[in-house]
Amino acid sequence: MKFFVNIDGGSRGNPGNAAAAMVITNEAGQVLATKSKFLGNKLTNNYAEWSALEGAVAALVHLARQHGNIEAEVRSDSELIVRQFNRKYKIKAPELYEIARRVWENLADNPNLKVTLSYVPREENKLADAAVNRELDNYRL
């Protein structure tokens, strides 16, 4: 079974109010789930992006436990996060490295889940971006 997951994270102020989101679709392009979460105040955009990835991996682990072997293509409009996840760039901030460590461990502990993370332009990530912005807009209410 194959899934596609678009993720996004955002921080208004950077650091500032931050949120993360993911949109899970199947091979036919049907949206199966959209999840977003307000993360807190005084957080960076990179923290929000890594949190979005961590949430997506947790959701995929849950799906893999339900459905067996799963292949997932996770897509992000953050080139930095993609390069850090794929170990092309080092992660210097300890709080970001801690999230990355949890993501990598979660993937290693679930061999029935194969995940790739790739970069997509912002135009191809509109649903996840909109979910982040809705979450941030709702926080202001």
Results as ranks from 00 to 15, higher is better:
residue 49 E to S: 02
residue 134 R to K: 15
residue 93 A to S: 15
residue 56 A to P: 06
residue 138 N to M: 14
residue 129 D to T: 13
residue 102 R to Q: 14
residue 126 K to S: 08
residue 123 E to W: 02
residue 133 N to T: 12
residue 60 L to W: 07
residue 99 I to E: 05
residue 63 L to N: 08
residue 49 E to G: 05
residue 78 S to H: 00
residue 44 T to H: 05
residue 136 L to R: 03
residue 70 I to L: 15
residue 52 A to R: 00
residue 91 I to E: 01
residue 60 L to R: 08
residue 77 D to G: 10
residue 68 G to W: 03
residue 113 L to K: 01
residue 63 L to E: 11
residue 105 E to K: 15
residue 47 Y to P: 01
residue 97 Y to G: 09
residue 48 A to R: 00
residue 111 P to D: 13
residue 128 A to H: 07
residue 118 S to C: 08
residue 70 I to A: 04
residue 93 A to C: 10
residue 42 K to R: 14
residue 103 V to K: 02
residue 101 R to S: 12
residue 88 K to R: 12
residue 106 N to F: 02
residue 62 H to Y: 13
residue 58 A to K: 15
residue 82 V to Q: 00
residue 120 V to C: 00
residue 84 Q to F: 08
residue 113 L to P: 00
residue 85 F to S: 00
residue 92 K to H: 11
residue 116 T to Q: 11
residue 50 W to Y: 15
residue 121 P to C: 05
residue 137 D to R: 09
residue 122 R to I: 03
residue 110 N to S: 13
residue 92 K to D: 04
residue 77 D to N: 12
residue 96 L to H: 06
residue 117 L to D: 01
residue 94 P to R: 03
residue 77 D to M: 05
residue 70 I to Y: 03
residue 114 K to H: 13
residue 130 A to N: 07
residue 77 D to C: 06
residue 111 P to F: 03
residue 92 K to A: 10
residue 133 N to W: 05
residue 47 Y to S: 03
residue 66 Q to M: 11
residue 80 L to P: 03
residue 84 Q to W: 10
residue 88 K to A: 07
residue 67 H to M: 03
residue 133 N to F: 04
residue 49 E to V: 11
residue 113 L to D: 00
residue 121 P to V: 11
residue 89 Y to N: 02
residue 122 R to T: 03
residue 109 D to Y: 07
residue 44 T to A: 00
residue 134 R to H: 10
residue 85 F to P: 00
residue 75 R to H: 09
residue 43 L to I: 13
residue 56 A to T: 01
residue 124 E to G: 06
residue 91 I to D: 00
residue 103 V to G: 02
residue 79 E to V: 12
residue 123 E to I: 07
residue 135 E to S: 15
residue 131 A to G: 04
residue 86 N to C: 10
residue 121 P to L: 04
residue 87 R to P: 01
residue 118 S to K: 14
residue 93 A to L: 10
residue 101 R to I: 01
residue 116 T to M: 05
residue 64 A to T: 00
residue 82 V to L: 01
residue 133 N to H: 04
residue 126 K to L: 10
residue 41 N to H: 14
residue 108 A to K: 15
residue 74 V to W: 05
residue 105 E to I: 08
residue 139 Y to V: 09
residue 49 E to R: 05
residue 93 A to R: 15
residue 114 K to M: 06
residue 117 L to R: 06
residue 68 G to A: 09
residue 103 V to D: 03
residue 116 T to N: 11
residue 140 R to F: 14
residue 46 N to I: 13
residue 61 V to C: 11
residue 59 A to V: 02
residue 95 E to G: 01
residue 53 L to I: 13
residue 78 S to Y: 07
